[in-house]
Write a protein that binds this DNA or RNA. Structure first.
Length: 307
DNA sequence: ACCCAGGTGGCTT
DNA sequence: AAGCCACATGGG
């Protein structure tokens, strides 16, 4: 039942960076018996992560350029693609270093988190590079997840998504062997099962005013077929410019998409002096300055500023 | 009590 | 096109 994959010689890879840059909501560091997680000097979990991608659960560990995956399913190419291991992020970072300050691409500690970018003077010390990767996630899961994300915070988004999966998804057989406490993990519910949900159930589950949007989005996805373009996405109730860009970047792997959320507004104000209401100006700036790499740039900036 | 979180829809200028 | 504001919920 349980499969094991080992990938050697993996560069530009860090589980904490990948799973905690806001692109996904179902991966968490594995806790010890006391519920603690070991952190490195920069405040990032150093050990294994456990979570779900599509219908498969997995536990991953990365050490000395070797990635080890224990999974309930999928094959080598599934996980390779999910983690975007075909892409050379060294090249991307080399290009981005020309257009964003180099310290954004470097590790830093939590104690530095809330300093203004304008007053920050990093000096010439060298630090490990941030090693984000843009995952190749399921489109439907990404749509529903980012509809839930609106005007919400990441811990609560994660809770709501887990509740949705536990109630409407399927238990993943073998996942109980991966969790520390024998707990089952659940697949993300299918399009059909989300379409069949009564919004009042979601309201009872504290989804708030998003409750109506979720089954409606699944129905639309079924009836109209998979959305491809920005215009397709923004036509959904509950999907505006920001969520549409997140879905393009994280669910369709359109890596020039540049989602502008509250954090990016803070960054663009702090770093480049944009008014926080001037999302149009920010988008144009990102397109001109970051071009085809705008999505990567956004992720590095988001990770840098939010940490 | 108030403000914020990976915002959007709808209504008014 | 741009500017308001309500929208559920929970944490600080």
């Amino acid at each position: 039942m349980k499969k094991k994959f080992v990938f050697n010689g993996i560069k530009d890879f860090n589980l904490a960076h990948i799973f905690e840059c806001g692109q996904c909501f179902r991966w968490n560091p594995v806790e010890d018996e006391n519920g603690n997680v070991e952190l490195d000097e920069f405040g990032n979990p150093t050990g294994a992560y456990i979570g779900v991608a599509g219908a498969y659960a997995a536990r991953m560990q990365f050490q000395d350029d070797t990635l080890t995956i224990e999974a309930t399913g999928g094959d080598e190419s599934f996980w390779w693609h999910y983690l975007d291991l075909d892409t050379d992020y060294g090249v991307i970072k080399r290009e981005l270093r020309k257009v964003i300050p180099s310290y954004v691409l470097e590790e830093r500690g939590d104690s530095e988190a809330n300093l203004s970018l304008l007053v920050k003077k990093r000096g010439s010390e060298t630090r490990p590079q941030i090693s984000i990767r843009i995952l190749n996630q399921d489109k439907f899961e990404t749509i529903i997840s980012f509809i839930i994300s609106q005007n919400n915070n990441i811990p609560r988004i994660k809770k709501l998504i887990e509740a949705l999966c536990e109630r409407y998804g399927e238990p993943i057989s073998g996942s109980e062997e991966l969790t520390a406490d024998g707990r089952m993990l659940f697949s993300f519910p299918t399009i059909e099962s989300v379409a069949a949900i009564n919004p009042s159930e979601l309201a009872e589950m504290k989804f708030g005013y998003r409750a109506d949007y979720i089954p409606a989005a699944a129905k639309r996805f079924m009836e109209e077929g998979e959305p491809e373009s920005y215009e397709d996405l923004i036509a959904y109730l509950g999907i505006g410019p920001k969520v549409a860009n997140c879905i393009q970047l994280f669910g369709l792997h359109k890596v020039d998409a540049f989602p502008i959320d509250t954090w990016v507004k803070h960054i663009m104000n702090d770093m480049y002096g944009f008014k926080e209401s001037d999302t149009r100006g920010m988008a144009q700036f990102a397109e001109e300055r970051f071009g085809t790499l705008a999505g990567y740039a956004q992720q590095y900036l988001f990770f840098y500023y939010r940490k």
